[in-house]
């Protein structure tokens, strides 16, 4: 299902990696922010013919405090829970204005939202937009909590993580529910393209953006976005941690094109989940003997998910 104006693109490689970032320096993201880094990569791959709808959250706040904007793209922020709907409106306007000859080009719509704005408060709006089939790319930058308001738990917060509203206490050792798998929820919408990406694998990430942009209809990409403030880690480890997330299979890299699953990266050596958890203060309490069952349970879950994903990938490959 290619776009009506097919973008005949040259696949991004290490040699031709696009360099022009559509977010300027001088933004107010924390030092070492993994989200803005991932978002910058998205804009490099997506190019200039874009309109952005940004949900309320860190990325909206740090890029737009009046009177300056970091955005070099047309950008609209409305509220927290409605990026999907706002994007729908922009896309519909583009369609009709183009059809009526009022605009010459049809810019692509990209929505940016955090995991809270995507998997929790904005799920309805996103689900509606995907179901209606708007031609747009929705990017979730998933840092696993409400970081903008001070690291409160979200539906996407991983099992066992200590947050300001799921604190690790003597009775309850952190968040006692598993992470809401928003990528799979989006896949269940049977949209033409769903993917998971990580800034540590920047070529993979940019190629997914490129591919998504070449496909007509609704697309969803979930990007792991380390936040050292919320993850209680160091300011220099956004890439290192997102790489560990991929290599422990906590955050496998895959895409689902028209329902066919393809793993886009298989770790050379699948590392134990502990390697991803240990550098993060939000999981520190899990390394106490009484809480180790949480790590074990998480590992079991990740192993099972990984096997299932590999099976799906193999099935997808067999279909081709």
């Amino acid at each position: 299902m290619l776009r009506d104006i097919t973008i005949d693109y040259e696949k991004i490689t290490a040699k031709n990696t696009p360099k022009e970032c559509m977010i300027s320096s001088g933004h107010r993201a924390c030092q070492g922010c993994g989200e803005i880094l991932a978002m910058g990569m998205v804009t490099k791959a997506a190019g200039k013919d874009i309109i952005v709808a940004n949900a309320t959250g860190c990325m909206e706040i740090v890029t737009s405090p009046f009177p300056q904007t970091a955005w070099k793209l047309p950008w609209l922020h409305v509220a927290f829970e409605n990026a999907g709907a706002v994007g729908s409106g922009i896309e519909a306007a583009i369609k009709v204005l183009h059809r009526q000859g009022k605009i010459k080009k049809k810019p692509h719509v990209i929505c940016f939202a955090g995991d809270g704005a995507t998997a929790d408060i904005g799920l309805q709006s996103l689900s509606g937009a995907m179901e209606r089939g708007h031609d747009m790319l929705y990017i979730c930058y998933d840092n696993g909590a409400y970081m903008n308001t001070g690291t409160q738990r979200s539906g996407a917060t991983p099992f066992g993580a200590s947050t300001t509203t799921s604190p690790a206490g003597s009775s309850v050792p952190g968040k006692m529910q598993h992470r809401k798998d928003i990528t799979r929820i989006m896949a269940a919408h049977n949209i033409p393209y769903v993917a998971q990406a990580s800034p540590s694998h920047h070529l993979d990430l940019m190629r997914k953006i490129q591919k998504a942009m070449s496909i007509s209809g609704p697309k969803f990409i979930n990007i792991l976005s380390p936040c050292h403030r919320g993850w209680r880690s160091k300011s220099d480890d956004a890439i290192a941690l997102s790489r560990l997330a991929v290599n422990t299979c906590y955050w496998p890299l895959f895409e689902m094109e028209n329902g066919k699953t393809r793993l886009t990266h298989t770790p050379k050596e699948k590392l134990p989940l502990k390697d991803f958890l240990r550098p993060q203060g939000r999981f520190a309490h899990l390394f106490r003997p009484e809480n180790e069952w949480i790590i074990e349970q998480s590992q079991t879950q990740i192993d099972a998910d990984w096997v299932a994903l590999q099976d799906k990938g193999a099935a997808g490959a067999a279909l081709e």
Partner: peptide
Amino acid sequence: ESEHSAMSAAVGAAAA
């Protein structure tokens, strides 16, 4: 899928 989205989409479309 809701009035909240009806107004949100209206805002997006008008802004475009």
